[in-house]
């Protein structure tokens, strides 16, 4: 029985990890857009890494 609860927690944890990773992937373009729009000047915008 204890093992079952463990498994359940593990599963929920996995679920959250997956959801959060995917959320980041979906939100990343927005974040990038917002941060880019707040940068001034070309040198900052085209700095690499972004």
């Amino acid at each position: 029985m204890k093992k079952g609860i463990y498994l359940k927690y593990l599963r929920t944890l996995f679920l959250y990890i997956a959801l959060i990773t995917l959320s980041i992937a979906f939100i990343m373009p927005f974040l990038w857009m917002v941060t880019t729009s707040l940068k001034s000047g070309e040198d900052e915008i085209f700095s690499y890494p972004p």
């Binding site: 929920t12 997956a18 959801l19 995917l22 979906f26 939100i27």
Partner: peptide
């Protein structure tokens, strides 16, 4: 991933839909 009834699914739903 969104089907299981865990906390915060509505937030994730919104994020994926935006």
């Amino acid at each position: 991933l969104l089907y299981p009834k865990v906390k915060g699914t509505s937030v994730f739903r919104t994020i994926f839909y935006i």
